[in-house]
Design a binder for these strands. Structure first.
Lengths: 108, 108
DNA sequence: AATATGCGCAATTATTCGGTTGCGCAAATA
DNA sequence: TATTTGCGCAACCGAATAATTGCGCATATT
């Protein structure tokens, strides 16, 4: 059973769940109203998200509120980090091109 | 056939391929030497990465060099963006706590 | 020209995934 | 106390995945 964050956010429904929960903690039933699939289907997604610590539960009577855990999402950000400099560098290069164009224009 | 970036980076082998190619464009054979699985298995991953534009091919004789496309990876970063403020806010709160502690210490 | 190499494609297979349905249990409500 | 409600768990099913194997086709190399 692979249960890492990348596999967790691979599913569009789970990404939607995360976006919703990030705004406000919700119960499985409340979440399910936002989707076409059944409560159980949503609950399965919730289980996966919980197992990889992207969300956390907090019992309140018979209701369970699921909260978003930003710290875990950081891990994705950290993986992206190795590539970030590449598109930023490309941006710098574009800046350079624009500067060169300006210079040429001035030289005319 | 779902072919979005999130599904593409869900596989650990594909993530490794991306990390390697980001450093230097490579051929399928060169890539395959880094993994236990066969060249064909690696080629399949390459195909998926190509289909969702995370990498691009450049033919050179009978060899095909695959390059990393940072622009596409940006899309993941943009999705993460909606959560970033949450862990940054939490960081701010920690700062606040530290400031409060300092103040209390001074008051003593 | 004959052989070797690099590669993509197609068929096959075992495993995983996302979904539904049915169940049982505890908490709320009548 | 009887019923309803919120929820997790287990069994099952079809579709998708990841990997292997075998093939054919170009481009190099001999």
């Amino acid at each position: 059973m692979r249960r890492d964050i990348f596999q967790a956010i691979a599913d569009p429904t789970r990404r939607a769940i995360l976006s919703l929960i990030a705004l406000q903690a919700m119960t499985p039933n409340a979440l399910a109203t936002h989707f076409d699939s059944s409560r159980q289907a949503v609950s399965k997604h919730i289980k996966i998200l919980t197992e990889c610590k992207l969300i956390e539960q907090k019992q309140d009577g018979r209701e369970i509120y699921y909260h978003f855990n930003p710290e875990k999402m950081k891990e994705v950000d950290q993986w992206i980090e190795q590539f970030r400099k590449m598109w930023e560098r490309r941006f710098d290069q574009l800046d350079q091109v624009l500067l060169d164009m300006k210079r040429k224009k001035k030289d005319k």
